[in-house]
């Protein structure tokens, strides 16, 4: 079975973020980067499926040159080879463009299964996997907690709201977006790190992957959410202030 895992490199979670002048993105100079957390679980799931069913795990990453370290980490953990769509300005790409490039790189590989994290730690749209499935013309399921494969069919457990789960049986090939925490991540061993050097990383340009096309949405502005706290003092006697309060709670705050 051939499994492709789409991974993204994002700023490390404990980063101190500073917004670029122009407010189009954050300053990246002093940041350290790591694998997007849900993608790490997707990779682990792929490696465990390979251990059970055999086959091959291919790590696929769209990102600038620095993303190579994250790709190497995936190889060190056990991915067999990797594809790097090398694109310096990924922050200017919208979800559709990202999915198009990933799909462009995936098509010729004809994988049995594509896994990716349910969303990215940096932008957090949670859309790339779904749009990717649409472009590949295969079914998908999101927020996956468990994956099992029997006789060419896929059975997955989805996380719904309020403690509910859903089990879905679906055909292969398919795209699954994986929830964080569903398995136990392995460490990159020193021997794995050593061997990763000899594994293949195929580098594609955006054009090689079929091009990103025209953006259908644009990132307007990056800003830190403003903390707003407005106090209102009701004037008048007890009866009229109570009436004003009830009106506010009913129609503005909508808690009554």
């Amino acid at each position: 079975m051939k499994i492709i895992v789409a991974i993204k490199q994002v700023p490390a979670r404990d980063s101190q973020l500073k917004i670029q002048s122009g407010a189009q993105w954050i300053e990246e100079d002093d940041l350290t980067f790591e694998i997007n957390e849900p993608d790490a679980y997707a990779l682990e799931e792929a490696l465990q499926l390979k251990e059970k069913h055999g086959g091959e795990v291919v790590a696929l990453c769209l990102g600038p040159a620095r993303a190579a370290s994250t790709i190497r980490e995936a190889l060190a953990k056990g991915a067999d080879r990797a594809i790097h769509i090398s694109e310096e300005s990924i922050n200017g790409l919208d979800t559709l463009a990202v999915a198009k490039l990933l799909a462009g790189a995936i098509k010729s590989e004809a994988p049995d299964l594509v896994l990716t994290g349910l969303q990215s730690d940096d932008l957090g749209y949670g859309q790339a996997g779904v749009v990717l499935a649409e472009l590949l013309g295969v079914p998908h399921a999101t927020i996956i907690m468990q994956v099992s494969i029997e006789g060419g069919t896929l059975r997955v457990k989805r996380e719904l709201e309020d403690g509910w789960f859903q089990f879905v049986t679906m055909p292969l090939p398919a795209v699954l977006t994986i929830q964080s925490g569903i398995n136990k991540l392995r460490y990159a061993t020193l021997m794995g790190i050593k061997k990763a050097k000899t594994k293949e990383i195929k580098v594609l340009s955006a054009a090689d992957a079929g091009g990103a096309g025209t953006a259908v949405s644009t990132l307007d502005r990056v800003y830190v959410p403003l903390r707003t706290k407005v106090s209102t003092i009701f004037e008048g006697d007890a009866k009229s202030t109570a009436a004003q309060l009830v009106e506010k709670l009913k129609f503005e705050v909508r808690v009554l």
Binding site: A68, A76, Y187, A188, T189, L190, I193, K197
Partner: peptide
């Protein structure tokens, strides 16, 4: 090298 950095990272995680 990138390898040294990867070793540092995995050891720190451990």
């Amino acid at each position: 090298t990138d390898e040294h950095r990867a070793i540092a990272k995995t050891t720190e995680e451990f």
